[in-house]
């Protein structure tokens, strides 16, 4: 099976699963006092719609004529690329998870340095950019714009 078809198949399955999960989640929501559906109505309808679209995507992937495949921007899934993405996500989560312990400056410096180095900047250039931009952002937001970091 070619990659675009596979992608659609997987996304179709994922949306069917997500829709089903939301649907069962909404069954636990209370109704209005007069018995009409309240909080559950909207997410419930959306869950059905999402799952239906998932099915459509799935069918589309199965019956899709091969010549439509060209529409896709294809990605090559090398393992290292995904590892790098994961690393940047973890660096991004440093601040929300450990802001009490390490604060803004070190966590954002780590992210900026990580991203620039992963994008093949020379390490000393990455270091210069990191220091300058962290300092610049920090000053601009705390002093100029009054955002307490």
């Amino acid at each position: 099976m070619d990659r675009p078809r596979m992608t659609n198949l997987l996304f179709g399955l994922a949306f069917i699963l997500a829709g089903t999960w939301v649907w069962f989640e909404t069954r636990g929501f209370p109704t209005l006092r007069d018995g009409h559906p309240g909080p559950a109505l909207f997410p419930g309808l959306l869950a059905i719609a999402l799952a239906t679209c998932g099915v459509a995507l799935l069918l589309h992937a199965v019956v899709q004529p091969a010549r439509l495949v060209a529409e896709f921007r294809t990605f090559s899934l090398q393992g290292h690329g995904l590892l790098r993405v994961l690393l940047v996500v973890l660096l991004g989560l440093l601040y929300p998870l450990f802001h009490r312990q390490i604060g803004f400056v070190p966590s954002s410096a780590a992210l900026i340095f990580g991203v620039t180095v992963l994008l093949r900047a020379k390490w000393w250039l990455a270091a210069v950019v990191t220091v300058a931009s962290t300092w610049g952002i920090y000053l601009a937001f705390t002093r100029l714009l009054g955002v307490p970091l």
Binding site: G92, S108, V129, I137, F141, V147, L149
Partner: peptide, 10 residues
Amino acid sequence: LGVIAGICIV
């Protein structure tokens, strides 16, 4: 992009 990542956080 490094700088943008930092700005996204703040």
